[in-house]
Simulated scan of single mutants.
Amino acid sequence: MGLINALSDGVMTVYFHYLLVRPEYQGTGIGKKLVKLMLKEYKDIARKAVIAYDSEVEFYEKCGFELGEDKSPMFVTYLKT
């Protein structure tokens, strides 16, 4: 139904790579539950980060994330989004 992935240095920063929820289960609370579980798992890590598509910013704000001021995500990639 859903999957969330994270990468952490174990001390300072955890980065949530992606959150996937099957379309037929979106809007049922699965995504919020997965984020909540990851935040609990990494509760002792000082910085928790996610790069969200503009359309998903509101979802992550509801999960407790805040937009960074004067920050821009940057990439070197061959993937098209």
Rank of each mutant, 00 (worst) to 15 (best):
M1H: 09
G2K: 07
G2F: 04
L3G: 00
L3R: 12
I4H: 01
I4C: 02
I4G: 03
N5E: 06
A6M: 06
A6W: 02
A6C: 14
L7K: 10
L7A: 10
L7D: 11
S8Y: 03
S8Q: 00
G10H: 06
V11G: 05
V11M: 01
M12Y: 11
M12A: 11
T13K: 12
T13M: 07
Y15F: 15
Y15C: 11
Y15H: 14
Y15E: 04
F16C: 09
F16V: 05
Y18L: 07
L19H: 03
L19R: 04
L20C: 08
V21E: 04
V21H: 07
V21N: 05
R22H: 14
P23D: 15
P23E: 14
P23I: 03
E24I: 06
Y25S: 10
Q26Y: 05
Q26I: 04
G27K: 10
T28S: 12
G29Q: 07
G29A: 03
G29H: 12
G29L: 10
I30S: 03
K32M: 05
K32N: 04
K32F: 00
K32G: 13
K33R: 10
K33Q: 11
L34F: 02
V35P: 00
V35S: 01
V35W: 02
K36W: 00
L37Q: 08
L37I: 08
M38K: 04
M38F: 12
L39V: 00
K40C: 01
E41G: 00
K43E: 15
D44Q: 07
I45Q: 09
A46Q: 13
A46G: 01
R47A: 05
K48N: 01
K48T: 02
A49L: 11
A49V: 11
V50L: 08
V50P: 04
I51C: 06
A52D: 02
Y53D: 15
Y53M: 11
S55E: 12
E56R: 13
V57Y: 08
V57S: 02
V57C: 06
F59K: 04
K62D: 03
G64C: 02
G64I: 00
F65N: 01
F65W: 00
E66P: 00
G68V: 14
G68C: 15
G68W: 06
D70E: 15
D70I: 00
K71F: 14
S72P: 02
P73C: 12
M74P: 10
F75W: 10
F75G: 13
F75T: 09
V76L: 15
T77L: 12
Y78S: 09
L79Q: 13
K80D: 12
K80W: 08
T81M: 08
T81V: 14
